[in-house]
C-alpha cells in the first residue's frame, strides 16, 4: 500500500475535506471513514488531526456547522457554504495544474528527468 509523506497528507487534507463536504453534510468521524473508503485505506490520517482542520475551515468561514441529535448524542455536522465551494474550485484548479506540470516533468522523454 502506498505510504504518503506527512507533508503531502497535510497539504491535501483541506481539498479532501472540502470535496467530501461537497457531496453532502457530514460529521468528523464519517468524513474520516469516507476518506478511508475512497482511498481504499491508502490515506490513513491520524484521526485527531482532522478536527483542528474542521475548526480552522469553520473559522475561515469556508464551512458552517450545526448540531443534530443522533443516538442520544449531539453530533456536529458540517456543510460546505458558497465561499467554500468557490475555494474548492480554486483548489481543484491548482491541484489539476500542478498534476499536469508533474506529468510533463515525469514524461520519460523529458530531458529534465535525471537518469
Amino acid at each position: 500500500m502506498q505510504n504518503y509523506s506527512k507533508e503531502l497528507i497535510a497539504a491535501s487534507t483541506i481539498p479532501i475535506v472540502l470535496s467530501i463536504l461537497k457531496r453532502g453534510d457530514n460529521y468528523g468521524y464519517k468524513i474520516i471513514k469516507e476518506v478511508q473508503e475512497i482511498s481504499e485505506g491508502a490515506l490513513n490520517w491520524k484521526e485527531g488531526s482532522l478536527y483542528p482542520v474542521l475548526t480552522k475551515l469553520e473559522k475561515n468561514k469556508l464551512i458552517s456547522s450545526y448540531i443534530k441529535t443522533e443516538n442520544g448524542r449531539n453530533r456536529k455536522y458540517y456543510s460546505l457554504n458558497d465561499t467554500g465551494k468557490s475555494f474548492l474550485v480554486q483548489l481543484q484548479s491548482e491541484w489539476q495544474s500542478l498534476h499536469e506540470i508533474m506529468q510533463k516533468i515525469w514524461r520519460p522523454q523529458n530531458p529534465l528527468i535525471l537518469e
Partner: peptide
C-alpha cells in the same frame, strides 16, 4: 464545549 463534545462523539 462544542469541540469537546465532537471529540467525545468521535
Amino acid at each position: 464545549s462544542e469541540e469537546s463534545n465532537e471529540l467525545r462523539d468521535h
